[in-house]
């Protein structure tokens, strides 16, 4: 359904080219949930934005293909892209407080996406259609209320006219999910949708997204820095580091038997609730600065405890270690 091949996104800055996404390969089947996990600056959000061709200036997609249902999104014209955004591929952003427009009622903002994509068609074209505007609005209103109900906003008729600041964080995120669902997208891109929310609200939102996935068969790419959330919610996981995928595969494999030293380190550094308390393992060093990262060799080299001399030089691609499981590490060559 979605296939990304050798995607490269570069930011031209004063300090040189920053390779935010560096040769990324990814594929997603219909109805599946893919988790994209990584720390800040690992390029996970950029990957999502590239799919919608929304990479902000001065970033540029310089290489690669993004095939969505067989068609390359990178070859589409801007107007064709506008058709796809929101309709076939919808996105949920991290911070619900800044995503909604504070000066319009929430319901109107959901209605806008119905209108833009012409979901409720006017009964007649031309001037007569214009005269029937009132009917069309009413139908749209009904559809919005239905959507709001579906995502769990109580009293949707009343809430339609509320402004974003009158909603709590969890409710705002529900409203955004309603916007994303308004056109029944085939693919939903969720960029840290629960990071700004409390655990109990996070559980509600994840529950809602899972229902959407099961009922509508919507595929989801779920970006998060929280491995535990990804482990519970996704079918497949791809771990990103410095713009590359270092490990990907089915959840049980990646979380259960991690292969890459970075994945292992991440898993060890999460505090766990077990009877025995141990000192936490901490990956040494800092998240790398992409601008000063050497283009050659493994980007994790400096922080890796299992590194050998060759890691500095070798150019690696993803290596298939077992069915559907890929690792980018010299140890599995």
């Amino acid at each position: 359904m979605l296939e990304i091949r050798n995607l490269k996104v570069i930011f031209e800055t004063d300090r040189g080219a920053v390779r935010a996404v560096n040769g990324l390969d990814l594929s997603l089947e219909k109805g599946k949930i893919l988790g994209l996990v990584g720390e800040s600056g690992s390029g996970k959000s950029m990957t999502l934005l590239s799919i919608l061709r929304l990479v902000p200036y001065p970033g540029k997609i310089v290489e690669g293909e993004i095939l969505f249902e067989g068609e390359d999104l990178l070859k589409k014209s801007p107007s064709e892209m506008r058709e796809i955004r929101g309709k076939d591929i919808a996105m949920i952003f991290q911070d619900p407080m800044t995503t909604l427009n504070p000066v319009f009622p929430v319901g109107e903002q959901i209605r806008e996406s119905l209108r833009v994509h012409n979901i409720i068609k006017p009964e007649r074209e031309g001037i007569l259609g214009f005269l029937r505007e009132k009917d069309r609005r009413k139908k749209e209103y009904e559809k919005v209320v239905e959507l709001m109900e579906k995502v769990g906003i109580s009293y949707p008729e009343k809430r339609y006219f509320s402004y974003p600041h009158q909603f709590s964080g969890g409710m705002q995120q529900r409203a955004i999910i309603a916007i994303a669902l308004s056109c029944n997208p085939k693919l939903l891109l969720a960029d840290e949708p629960t990071t700004a929310l409390d655990v109990t609200i996070q559980a509600q939102i994840l529950d809602l997204l899972r229902k959407i996935n099961e009922v509508n068969g919507t595929s989801i790419i779920f970006v998060t820095h929280d491995l535990a959330v990804a482990a519970e919610f996704c079918d497949e996981i791809a771990v990103m580091y410095a713009g590359q995928i270092v490990e990907k595969g089915p959840v049980d494999k990646v979380i259960g038997e991690p292969k890459h030293p970075y994945t292992k380190g991440l898993l060890k550094s999460i505090p766990k609730i077990t009877r025995k308390k141990e000192k936490l393992y901490a990956i040494p060093g800092n998240v790398p600065d992409l601008a000063s990262l050497s283009p050659k060799g493994c980007p994790f080299y400096e922080r890796c405890e299992e590194a050998v001399e060759e890691c500095k030089e070798v150019e690696l691609s993803l290596i298939e270690v077992s069915d559907g499981e890929f690792v980018r590490c010299i140890k599995y060559l």
Binding site: S168, G170, M171, D198, V199, T200, I201, Q202, A203, Q204, D207, D226, L227, A228, V229, A231, E232, F233, I255, L267, I270, K272, I273, T274
Partner: peptide, 25 residues
């Protein structure tokens, strides 16, 4: 109980039955 049940866990066996709290604070 509800708060604890909402913690996501990497370990499948550790997951508790989730109690979903209605509404917000």
């Amino acid at each position: 109980k509800a708060l604890l049940s909402a913690i996501p866990s990497v370990d499948k066996r550790k997951r508790r039955k989730r109690i979903i709290l209605e509404g917000t604070v």
